[in-house]
Amino acid sequence: MTSNQIFANARLILPDDVIRGSLIVRDGAIVDMDQGSSIPKGAIDCQDQFLAPGLIELHTDNLERHMQPRPKVDWPHKAAIVAHDRELAGTGITTVFDAIRAGSIISENSKRRFGKYARSMADEILEMRDAGVLKISHHIHLRAEICSETLEEELNEFGPADKIGIVSLMDHTPGQRQFRDLQKFEDYVCGKNGLSRDGFGDYVEFLYGLQEQFGAKHEAAAVAAANRYGATLASHDDTTALQVDHSRDRGVSIAEFPTTLEAADACYAAGIATIMGAPNLVRGGSHSGNVAAGDLAQRNRLDILSSDYVPAALLQGALRLATIWDDMPAGIATVTRNPAKSVGLSDRGSLEIGNRADLILFGKIEDTPILSAVWSQGKRVA
């Protein structure tokens, strides 16, 4: 018989309450809970720390950071996946949707080329996941780059068997959305990617040409692909109410990082869940001058947090929300229950009998989490 794991003397963060109690796990699932501070023989003494569901990350650039630790450095992908997996486990993330770019710029006349990698990278992630060498639960999130040359053919390399979780509509054409300010776009591409400022104007004109030639076609292809895969469809960097209306009409149910209060209000009215970056919340504002996540939280316009480019920000951001709202379960829900619900994962995201035993144990100093341990399906991973 499989023995029980007992987590005792914990502050259990339930969907609507925080209670002192114990939790019992068997075969990787939660099988019972009880109130009280007793510590049965053989139990894990949680020492009055918080016990919460494992964190769920829907959009992270962290894998790309491991793939390319420096400009023009292509790190071995399997090593990058393992490093990414271990880093996320160490920050309390037990389910991740790995964001992979689909849509490349490969023509010789481009000032900045992006090679194809989506299919091969997805194959490596799925191979390693199926081999059981990854510590946490990995899913695929395809970032569909509308302003590219190869999006449609890359999307056609995937199908329902790949179980793609999310397709997000990414339009990084300069002059709109995140890059409304052309000077900020110039600083971004020249500073981060080494593009000569002398060639910046030509590059912008090249991108405008791609948008004119492929924009509508690529967007339609991405929407159709999401439907074909059975994936959740997300928008990205909505700025205006008109853009949100456009997203809603195409079946978008998640809005990643709306850049203005106008867009966030429109998402709320349309019933579209809003994702904001935890680094934005932790820092007190957007690093690129967009709307502050804290302002949206104050207006009840924030549903889900994403660690974006700082994995450790996810739990810290949730605790910041718990303070803003004076509601620990609501803050934790933005990184557990809400993201799970938004992508149809009904077996995780809350401490409930029958759910996966994806768990984190932590204390805190003010809004700063002190993570003690992490379990994925009852197996300790950090």
Rank of each mutant, 00 (worst) to 15 (best):
T2L: 05
S3M: 05
A8S: 15
N9K: 13
D17T: 15
R20L: 11
G21E: 07
S22I: 03
S22P: 11
V25S: 08
A29E: 14
D34L: 00
I39C: 10
I44D: 03
Q49P: 04
G54A: 12
E57P: 06
N62I: 07
E64T: 00
Q68K: 04
P76S: 04
A79C: 04
A80D: 05
I81N: 01
R86E: 04
L88R: 05
L88D: 03
T91V: 12
G92C: 03
T95W: 08
V96F: 07
I100R: 03
A102T: 15
A102W: 04
G103R: 10
G103D: 06
S107P: 03
R112W: 14
A118H: 03
R119E: 00
S120T: 02
M121T: 08
E124I: 08
E124F: 03
L134E: 00
L134N: 04
L134C: 09
I136T: 07
S137C: 12
H138F: 03
H139C: 06
H139M: 01
H139A: 04
I146M: 02
C147G: 09
C147A: 11
S148Y: 10
S148V: 13
E152P: 06
E153M: 11
E154Y: 02
L155D: 03
E157F: 14
G159W: 00
P160W: 02
A161C: 13
D162G: 01
K163V: 10
I164E: 02
D171S: 02
H172F: 02
T173L: 06
P174W: 03
P174D: 01
Q176I: 14
L182H: 06
E186N: 09
C190N: 02
C190E: 05
G194N: 05
R197E: 06
F200T: 00
F200V: 03
E205F: 07
L207N: 05
Q213C: 04
F214A: 10
E219W: 14
A221E: 04
A222N: 13
A222G: 15
A226G: 14
N227F: 15
R228D: 12
A231E: 09
L233K: 02
T239C: 10
T239V: 11
S253N: 12
I254G: 01
E256W: 11
T259V: 09
T259R: 08
A264Y: 00
A266Q: 02
A270V: 13
I272T: 07
A278S: 12
R283Y: 11
G285N: 11
S288L: 06
V291S: 08
A292G: 13
A297V: 06
Q298L: 14
Q298N: 14
R299N: 13
N300S: 12
S306G: 09
S307C: 12
A312M: 13
A313M: 11
G317V: 09
A318V: 09
L321K: 13
T323Y: 01
I324C: 02
T334P: 00
R337Q: 13
G344W: 14
G344R: 11
R348H: 10
I353V: 15
R356L: 15
R356T: 09
L359Y: 09
I360T: 06
I360K: 04
K364N: 02
P369I: 12
K379A: 09
V381P: 13
